[in-house]
Write a protein that binds this DNA or RNA. Structure first.
Length: 482
RNA sequence: GGCCUUAUCGUCUAACGGUUUAGGACGCGGCCCUCUCAAGGCCGAAAUACGGGUUCGAUUCCCGUUAAGGCUACCA
């Protein structure tokens, strides 16, 4: 049995698409599970779409997600180079070989001529396809044009009247009539290969055993199969993954939301959550578990369980999953993330001890979905309330409240280093002496110290901000009530 | 238009012909817990696109219809 070798072969368009992340992830999981090799190959054969720093962004996003490759442009490997723009001679050599064998031919048509041809075909409601006009040229004419330096491409010659068949791991047997297959350009006039040629040549030379890619490639797979046959190479196994969809079921794209991994990163999603989420878009373990670490996914993944139908990218479930992954983290991990978050917040100049922040984490971890929620949902742990929620004020601050709060400050003042229970006891005592229900004190007090009507248990808040601060905040609130 | 692919709750999905009154999760609604908000627990509404076959029996197999998507470049 030959070694498992798979690759993720993105074109550097400037960012990593979440669909690309899913494809990369499945390749990675498949390789790791089978003890195979995961290769990163950059398909930069379109000079007109060159984007600066695209490759760095791609690598950055992949690393952020936690994926690690064994061979690639950054780390090298036995089949280097891993950037197609650095392998041009290879493609030319192979294209020429096909011409020699009669499986490909030169064509000298201009872009305008081709466009006109297509227009006519469309008008006559014919399938749009290269009409092989270049094949009418005699050998002498071709040589003359070549010698004269006329711009040209090399096209593959698709056989007539045959059926191209291949087995796809996710879709089963797929067939195409060769009449439907266009004489695809293999080598462009700028000397660069098209995807089809470069992809086949590289996959063979890099000994790729399984081609796992998006469904958008299914239609061009017969061209690739033909090329393997022309070269006399063994076919890899193909697995075409279902597409990731917009809410309207079209292929996931910009315009309808965020598609770049970096967008999700910037919005505060955890890499574990994004990875877990996209893993489940088209694959499931067969039982009812849904929460997985990358490591667990490696153990559970099987390409046979990949589904066939497209999956809508559902943000709400991603949000839930982010909360789940966040809550699973240790205090120490969240502390690191929170400190980082604080540095980018309005509190970047304030300092808080780790001990203090860990208390905040303990109080808030069941109430947040994102790290930034610690700051956004409970800013009162980092500064005094700036304003008091008007709806809550209306409901909780009655005329008698300021008197109650005053009593509370007196009671609290007598406490030394109170813990949660002592705050609670003190509040109960005050309520009793005032002859009112605990709620008459709890709600106004919560509002006074936090500015809002919701959050962790009141005594947790008091304990965290401390006695001096509690009393100060109550006093400031009393001013407001007046 | 042509070719290819797909089709279970709103969404992600389970069910590899019978154990199914079609299961789980997100979201949604209700209840419990409770100082609030969450978390948690319980309950609920919610789906096999349609039509033919095959079979003792179809979500599951076959055909057709419909719908959706992908591809149809000297882009990947």
């Amino acid at each position: 049995m030959s070694r498992i070798r798979v690759r993720f072969a993105p074109s550097p368009t400037g960012y990593l698409h979440v669909g690309g992340l899913r494809t990369a992830l499945y390749n990675y999981l498949f390789a790791r599970k089978q003890n195979g090799t995961f290769i990163l190959r950059i398909e930069d054969t379109d000079r007109s779409r060159y984007v600066e720093h695209a490759e760095e962004n791609l690598i950055e996003a992949l690393k952020w997600a936690g994926l690690v490759w064994d061979e690639g442009p950054d780390c090298g490997g036995p089949k280097a180079p891993y950037r197609q723009s650095e392998r041009l001679a290879l493609y030319r050599e192979h294209a020429l070989k096909l011409v020699d064998q009669g499986n490909a031919y030169y064509a000298f048509d201009t872009a305008d001529e081709l466009e006109e041809m297509r227009k006519e075909q469309e008008q006559m409601r014919l399938p749009v396809k290269y009409d092989r006009r270049a094949l009418k040229l005699s050998a002498a004419e071709v040589d003359a044009k070549l010698a004269a330096g006329v711009p040209h491409v090399i096209r593959m010659k698709v056989p007539d009247l045959t059926t191209v068949t291949f087995d796809d791991i996710v879709r089963g047997k797929v067939e195409f009539a060769s009449e439907q297959i266009d004489d695809q350009v293999l080598l462009k006039s700028d000397g660069f290969p098209t995807y089809h040629l470069a992809n086949v040549v590289d996959d063979h030379l890099m000994e790729v055993s399984h081609v796992i890619r998006g469904e958008e490639w299914l239609s061009s797979t017969p061209k690739h199969v033909l090329l393997y046959q022309y070269f006399g190479w063994e076919l890899p196994q193909f697995a075409h993954l279902p597409l990731l969809l917009n809410p309207d079921k079209s292929k996931l794209s910009k315009r309808q939301g965020d598609v770049a991994v970096e967008d999700y990163r910037a919005k505060g999603y955890l890499p574990e959550a994004l990875v877990n989420f996209v893993a489940l878009l088209g694959w499931n373990p067969g039982d009812e578990r849904e929460l997985f670490s990358l490591h667990e996914l490696v153990n559970e993944f099987s390409i046979e369980r990949v589904g066939k139908s497209g999956a809508v990218f559902n943000l709400e479930k991603l949000n839930w999953m982010n909360a789940e992954h966040l809550r699973k983290k240790s205090d120490a991990e969240i502390l690191r993330l929170l400190k980082n978050e604080l540095k980018q917040s309005e509190f970047k100049d304030a300092t808080f001890s780790d001990e203090y922040l860990v208390k905040v984490i303990g109080a808030m971890r069941e109430r947040v979905s994102f790290v930034k929620d610690f700051v956004e949902k409970s800013p009162y742990f980092f500064r005094r309330p700036k304003q008091f929620d008007p709806d809550v004020v209306k409901k909780r601050w009655k005329p008698e409240s300021s008197g109650y709060l005053k009593s509370l400050t007196q009671e609290f003042s007598s406490l030394t280093n109170p813990n949660k229970e002592e705050y609670e006891a003190a509040l109960h005592r005050t309520a009793q002496s005032l002859n009112v229900g605990n709620g008459q004190l709890i709600h106004p007090l919560r509002l006074a110290v936090s500015g809002t009507g919701s959050g962790p248990g009141l005594y947790d808040i008091l304990f965290i901000i401390g006695k001096e601060e509690t009393i100060k905040r109550i006093e400031l609130a009393i001013e407001k009530i007046k």
